[in-house]
Write a protein that binds this DNA or RNA. Structure first.
Length: 399
RNA sequence: GGUGAGUUACUCAAGCGGCCAACGAGGGCAGACUGUAAAUCUGCUGACUAUGUCUUCGAAGGUUCGAAUCCUUCACUCACCA
């Protein structure tokens, strides 16, 4: 049992520091039921969770299945600073109100994956608000600038002559201090968080907490573009609260290469199964498209249910395989004799009449499936289905 | 505090008095090819019923027939010195 648990814990991880400790904690749980704590911090900067977050959440869930209480830390205080990780420039500071709203939506979504009965939601403003200047200075004495500058992103910015605010220096310290307050046994995060995670260990030692947290890092999930990390600000994400159809369609649009990565980090399928599929695809027995459909179905199903996933698949196939028009497109009423470009803008599928003209010229616009080339066209009364490119549709009703 | 360099579209980055709605690259959108994949090729990429007009090159003023380009002030960024 313990061996199996550890195997599950190890799956897909990028790096584990102090695996012995994790092993001991799990073993103890299976011996006498003693639980332990796993901390994971979330910065409530963007309101919606996406698949990138679920990589961590799923790992937390695995821990919960093996005796862990999860300390879900909402970094409401630290969000006012902004995590400098991976940023090449000073981050914008959020106001408290937005942060609280975001934090609330986070919690609503998190329990799609986590077991609420084994989760403690904590806010770090609870102790950081009262830390005070004295406490902060005390904390700051425990680390020095040279080591802080060792951090990759700081170093780059420093050498590249870009600004680093003092507040950003404080960020890792404060995140580490959270681990002191929470007395976490284990903390998990993305590989980009390594520095911050290790800070937790460092500070737990400095404050004599009596233990040093083990650290487990998950790889960063690439976004839809396959290059940058999945993030809301880059717009290359699949949100878990998105419409089933969107989850399905977006998953299907990732490249074949990236698909394997998603399988490894997101699928519940065993690694052996995945390897088998990969082999079959290479041999030409299995079509990559079919494999990708499987992934899209699995993901859609996870956040909704089997029926919704099937429905999403059917809707997708109708539109793109059979070239049918989607059923649930929005309908807009417009005045008679409307200029086609204006109609496209009103229907919300073109941003401007200028853009509409260009697209018409390029043959990207269709009315009732028919390609048009006249950008001076006026619509007389009736109902039309307008289409721009492959995926933007609107129905307009002309009086 | 002093000295110097800089701030151009989504990002990077040219332009240094008219030929500038602004080179180039990336990104994005669209077309061809496909599996709405990737790769590749091509076109487009400020707005406006448009061979024209309007608004854009950190902000505000000024010089000029004419300014992204010159001058003044302000804001911000960076470097070196203190």
């Amino acid at each position: 049992m313990v061996t199996k648990a550890l195997e599950e814990i190890r799956r897909g991880t990028a790096e584990i520091i102090d695996m012995e400790r994790i092993e001991a904690l799990v073993r103890k749980y299976y011996e006498d039921g003693t639980t332990y704590t796993v901390k994971a911090g979330f910065d409530p900067t963007g309101a919606d969770l996406h698949l990138g977050h679920t990589v961590l959440l799923q790992k937390l869930r695995v821990f919960q299945n093996h005796g862990a209480r999860v300390q879900l830390l909402i970094g409401d205080f630290t969000a006012t600073i902004g995590d400098p990780t991976g940023k090449s420039e000073t981050r914008k500071v959020l106001d408290k109100e937005t942060i609280m709203v975001n934090a609330k939506t986070y919690q609503d979504q998190v329990f799609n994956v986590l077991d609420p009965s084994k989760t403690d939601v904590v806010f770090n403003s609870e102790w950081l608000d009262v830390l005070g200047a004295g406490g902060l200075v005390g904390l700051a004495t425990l680390f020095n600038v040279a080591r802080m500058l060792e951090r990759d992103d700081f170093e780059k910015r420093y050498k590249g002559g870009q600004s680093i605010s003092i507040a950003e220096f404080l960020y890792p310290l404060l995140q580490g201090y959270d681990s002191v307050e929470l007395k976490s046994d284990i903390e998990i995060g993305g590989t980009d968080q390594k520095f911050n995670l290790l800070m937790g260990r460092h500070l737990q030692r400095a404050y004599h907490v009596g233990k040093e947290q083990a650290v487990l890092m998950m790889p960063i999930l690439e976004g839809l573009d396959g290059v940058h990390k999945m993030s809301k600000s880059l717009g290359n994400y699949i949100g878990i609260a998105e419409d089933p159809k969107d989850i399905y369609a977006k998953t299907l649009s990732v490249s074949d290469e990236l698909m394997w990565r998603y399988y490894e980090l997101l699928s519940a399928k065993s690694l052996q199964e995945i390897m088998q599929m990969k082999e079959n695809v290479e041999k030409g027995i299995l079509h990559p498209k079919a494999v990708k459909e499987g992934l899209a179905l699995e993901l859609t199903e996870r956040f909704y249910n089997t029926d919704a996933a099937q429905e999403a698949k059917e809707a997708f196939d109708n539109v793109f395989k059979a070239n049918l028009i989607p059923e649930d497109i929005q309908e807009v009423a417009v005045e008679n004799n409307i200029w086609i470009c204006k109609a496209l803008v009103d229907a919300g599928i073109e941003p401007s009449t200028s853009q509409a003209r260009r697209d018409i010229k390029q043959g990207a616009v269709r009315i009732n499936q028919e390609k048009i080339s006249d950008d001076q066209l006026a619509l007389s009364s009736g109902e039309y289905v307008l289409q721009v490119g492959k995926r933007k549709f609107a129905k307009v009703k002309v009086d």
